[in-house]
Design a protein around this nucleic acid. Structure first.
Lengths: 303, 303
DNA sequence: TCGTCTTTGCAACAAATGATTCAAATATGC
DNA sequence: GCATATTTGAATCATTTGTTGCAAAGACGA
């Protein structure tokens, strides 16, 4: 209905394309809006191919013009914003009909208000974590995914992070060593797991600075935390929304990385190199070719 | 930052505009997408004013260029990859100044376009999962958090989910039993971990229906998947954004729950009851009192 | 190894774009 | 009613756009 039929066409023809055209096709698939919004030359520049290639791609896909090619992409984006107001109202009742749309709407709105609600908390949280000797990360049950994510990415930045997961039931034992020089990032939403409340309380009592991601200033975590990042959890669905909490963690990580400057950049490059040498990642192209060119975005790292 | 402040600006200045400029402004307000997608001349033609008027309108609103005017309109409903190129360069210097705001902006915009990009894919994905005898969930490294989240919440709905985590290195062995009646939800973003690619390929070869959450139609997962949910990963920060993938998982879960109807509601109540009887959750009130009352919102469940 | 065929990108082209200029049309103040 | 200011649009200019032609580079089969 939207862009699907076109991208299908591209995917189906993809294998029969020449290498250079694939490069272009890949970029077009990944950035469909850019086709509509940018000029052909600018699009080609960003895709890293000469302008002619874009024209050739369009022709290969049976468009007479580049203009026709672009129009299809434009139409795909025009439709939803226009017709949605009308179609959104109807059909809210029908059991999950259009529920993804409603959730999307809600989540986007929640995410877009995170900083407003937390003003300087992000900075304070970053400072707290930077100063810490050790950074413990805690999150149980529904919050574990967020905690894991933070710990994993943080591990690319610095090596003083420790995820308190419970493999073997020993996970949180490490907290016993937490002290005043350390920091604890704790994530817990209503209903707060008993373990989260008790263990953070223990650490705080020992003088550890807690950064909390939680859902209310009045949550048992927030009241003991040095800084709290408050996230909404309302959702049109059965479940509490965790996306805002996840986004908050991701934003905090971004801030930490940015503040780290060159030192962090080095650490990331280091981690990448190690992973590459372990052959962790899958690669498209035949290994024989010049591998240098096959790393398209050098500055960008893997989270 | 997006379109809102601009249309505000137009409305506020509207009264002080000359008649002809109002004509133009009115059209621009009613067709903001056209500003981004059409040329100035074409836009003017449709608005019924000479081209110069559009330029004058842009200037009147303190834009140096018509290009700047258009860019603002483009940025409003475009994912941030494009417009951020400019701000990324300068922003990285200022070591994270206002980075949370920029990330928030980007993430919110990305989340708000998830369904547009994936149209019917959510429904197809839900159907596939519903039909499956077993539902395997796979995600490594940076994607594990998302996989965990899905598996955890899915576990509240039904008991046929299985997270392929690697505790003890045995995690993915379970995939050996995957067959044509089963489904596999796989999450992998660039750079794709070798293990994810190989193991999903194995399952697909055995006839398992794969639902992929990935970042391109051309990713090694998408090409083998029955349905693909495509998520953006661009970010103003060092790292790839995972929030869109997380939100997608959450939206899919919401859809599954909604489609499940009463049966699912029962299952959730069941799970809650069990957790409560294990005393998993912390409660504000003194223990002596009636414990029943300490389950605050009966309708709302824990994700 | 050579010759053929495909793929690729540079340079040049015509058309269209955004922007400028200026004169006509209209409104405004005295 | 006249002179001044403002508003408007046509004609024009310098760029940029999409497109074409052609030659170099590369792949492939004999």
């Amino acid at each position: 209905m939207t862009a699907a039929p076109l991208s299908d066409r591209i995917v189906r023809q993809f294998d029969s394309l020449t290498p250079q055209l694939r490069e272009a096709a890949r970029f077009v698939l990944d950035h469909p809006q850019d086709v509509a919004l940018l000029s052909m030359r600018e699009l080609a520049r960003r895709a890293g191919v000469p302008p002619v290639t874009m024209l050739r791609l369009a022709r290969q896909l049976d468009f007479p013009d580049y203009a026709a090619f672009r129009q299809v992409h434009a139409a795909a984006w025009r439709k939803p914003s226009g017709s949605d107001f009308a179609s959104r109202a109807e059909g809210l009742q029908k059991r999950g009909e259009r529920l993804p749309e409603r959730m999307e709407q809600a989540l986007a709105s929640q995410v877009s208000h995170l900083t407003a609600r937390n003003a300087d908390a992000f900075t304070t949280a970053a400072e707290t974590i930077e100063r810490a000797r050790r950074v413990y990360v805690l999150g149980f049950r529904s919050c574990f995914g967020v905690a894991f994510q933070f710990a994993y990415v943080y591990g690319l930045l610095r090596d003083n992070g420790l995820l308190l997961d419970g493999a073997g039931g020993t996970g949180t034992d490490a907290l016993r060593q937490a002290g005043p020089q350390d920091a604890l990032l704790a994530i817990s939403l209503e209903p707060y797991t008993r373990a989260a409340v008790e263990q953070t309380a223990f650490a705080v009592q020992r003088g550890t600075a807690m950064v909390a991601i939680t859902d209310s200033e009045l949550s048992p975590l927030a009241r003991q935390a040095k800084v709290s990042l408050i996230v909404p959890t309302e959702s049109p669905s059965f479940f509490h929304a965790l996306t805002p909490a996840f986004a908050t963690a991701e934003m905090l990580l971004g801030l930490l990385a940015a503040r780290g400057g060159a030192k962090v950049a080095d650490a990331i490059r280091n981690a990448e190199g190690q992973l590459a040498s372990f052959d962790t990642y899958w690669t498209d192209r035949p290994k024989s070719k010049t591998q240098v060119k096959s790393q398209p975005k050098p500055g960008k790292s893997r989270s």
